[in-house]
Amino acid sequence: MAAILAVTEQRGGSLRKVSLEVVAAARQLADAMGATVDAVVCSSGPVEGVAALGNAGADQVRHASHETFTLYNPDGFAATIASVGGGYAAIVFAATAMGRDLAPRVAAKLGVGCATDVTGLGTEGGAVVVTRPVYAGKAIQQVRLTGATAVLSIRPNTFATGSAAKAGTLQPLAVPAFTARVTVTAVKAPAQASLDVTEAPIVVSGGRGLREPANFKLLEDLAAALGNAAVGASRAVVDAGWREHGAQVGQTGKTVAPSLYVAVGISGAIQHLAGMRTSKVIVAINKDKDAPIFKVADYGIVGDLFEVVPRLTAEVTKLRAE
């Protein structure tokens, strides 16, 4: 029986949330092909949260344990997954920092291509077919993967996690001999410690309308009130040195697809829209009622952000306390 491999992620011994999405996507593909799903996790010890992988759709969980697998080990992870990858009909990664590095390594080792940032997947005549945004989401490409193993990575926050009630039986996976050519020596906190914009289910972004860097405090307050929210920024303010590069949303920054995107004082240049237009719900707050951002926003407020945002923060705090 054909099988799909779902490559999960852990950090600090805890399974990352995106892993459930990877398993859910693999499950979706497996159900279409009549296949089973194996999840794989690489770590140096037990991983908290792997028990949830069965419910997310994994028939088996293959645990590759190695003393050097505390942090991401590019060559070690790639060697491990490639050592069994050829036996799978497809390998599903997340298009995260790790997945973007790891998937092409595994694909190259298996001698096949790699479809990145997949937002839709299925089968057609036995082959895996995927849809993926290209040109910063301005177009959607349909691709048929014809290799013996289809290697792909899914865009985070795109595949819904459900309840599949599979066994998720834990099995050890042997780590083959490998040469660690590149090593991750440490993981540092980012300069502006906060949730990453690509991962956060809610993103509150600010642009030039905030007038000066200190006013981002208003957005940080709103993000805190919303909970689980990251603060993003337009290119203009990142270029002006107000915010870190990592917070930039748009064509030359991050592409985000949160469930809620709040654009504050951002006019909505085409480059910015390219980075956030696939968000599920878009809110715009801008003083200029003609700002292009209102064309893509589900909900808009025309007004002075310095008045509107504090009120919104208060209202959200009140609602969430109920």
């Binding site: 203009a236 006019s267 240049a269 200029d288 003609d290």
Partner: peptide, 8 residues
Amino acid sequence: MSVASAAS
């Protein structure tokens, strides 16, 4: 950025 200069 104004509406008119929204794209380069």
